[in-house]
Design a protein around this nucleic acid. Sequence first.
DNA 1: CTGGATATTATGTATGCACATATTATAATT
DNA 2: AATTATAATATGTGCATACATAATATCCAG
Lengths: 230, 230
Amino acid sequence: MRVNSHHDIRQSIRTRIESGEWQLGALIPGEMALADEYGCARTTINRALQTLASDGLVVRKRKGGTRVCEMPVRQAKFEIPILREQVEATGCTYRHQIMSQKLKTPTTSVRTRLRIPEDIKALFMETIHLADGRPFAYEQRWVNLQAVPDILDAPLDKLSANEWLVKTVPFSSGDVVFTAENADSTVADALQSNVGNAIFVVDRTTWMGEDFITTMKLFYRDGYQLYSSL
Amino acid sequence: MRVNSHHDIRQSIRTRIESGEWQLGALIPGEMALADEYGCARTTINRALQTLASDGLVVRKRKGGTRVCEMPVRQAKFEIPILREQVEATGCTYRHQIMSQKLKTPTTSVRTRLRIPEDIKALFMETIHLADGRPFAYEQRWVNLQAVPDILDAPLDKLSANEWLVKTVPFSSGDVVFTAENADSTVADALQSNVGNAIFVVDRTTWMGEDFITTMKLFYRDGYQLYSSL
DNA sequence: CTGGATATTATGTATGCACATATTATAATT
DNA sequence: AATTATAATATGTGCATACATAATATCCAG
């Protein structure tokens, strides 16, 4: 078994940090010293430490040396899956149903988010995503037609707007806001739930470079849980 | 300006991918070819590509070459801050108040989560976290005393259990579940809210190696938003 | 004592080289 | 034709080296 791979060394150093061998914020030995200790080249240690740094476990500074991160930031990470995949992952059959789809003048808030001029219309659509025929999530979406005019020709009954956009504009950036809201009658109706029920809501805006593409609000069915680990 | 750092090259390749120069799933030139094109060593290209791979932008396979990721996974990432910091980041003054704190026999569900034997008690506490004197979040927490007996000696009125645990067991792992719940009378009371209001809830369990340390449920005040970007 | 030039130091990065390893393509064998 | 060796190939990794860069320490002049 190779024992001098940057991989092994990284794991070893990680363990030593987590075991408390070096306190929070403490300076750990320099690359030369570690290379000596592990019997490898400085390059290898460097690589291991750089990885640990990008993982947020240590902080490195030229001349200052490497020290254990003072306040190890707990980062939760999770994937934002396409709804189809999210549903199919639970073993259910996915289907979606477009409730409405029309060109409308966006509200001021949407206009601001998507940087749409005042007199321009945008595509508004409501979709229900179903798992085994039961409502899984209700989606309200605005699409900026100036950014993606082609969506009007897309077969949105086959492929959800979400999927079409992911395929068409794969490398967009975005932001996400999670909230809890009480269902109003529209949402309760769409999800076959009751008015007032607590609904997990995801609000997402997506852009690519200068083009603001879409903003949507996703209301998950009662009891939905978003799981993550840290 | 240096133009041959792996950093620059990585950015360049990233841009070329995002611009669509190489389609989704397409094979991109080999390391040798790119090294030639950029006029640098293969090592440098290798490093740039490895970073891109760990970012999930490309997939690399020995002999298979490097290709643009078929299904670029959207990953949202966010930090789980200490409540004090979260409150102070909004410019408010943080204070917390312990409502109750006692040794109790945990419920079956908690016993399972924390791997506590049947006849052993655990520490249960309720805390209200305040921002400028107004309720910000209500916390229900169980602490496994077999894992961290010292918490009984901690000045929990000065330092919240959360902070004490982070300082004492800094490198623990955990999982997190986000949900929306309707406030019951206990929660509504603690948050000075109304029964039935939609509450954003975070449920978290933390362990370190084999030791299960704590599990807690955090009820945020009305209108709380968790923000993230992708 | 203070400000600023200078040396020192730990990490950052690029390179050439050698070899390892996984995977595919091809050839040899049954 | 199917199976099994073998070669070819792109990436993975380690090393020695050289130089770059940022931050600190030191020393010297005023």
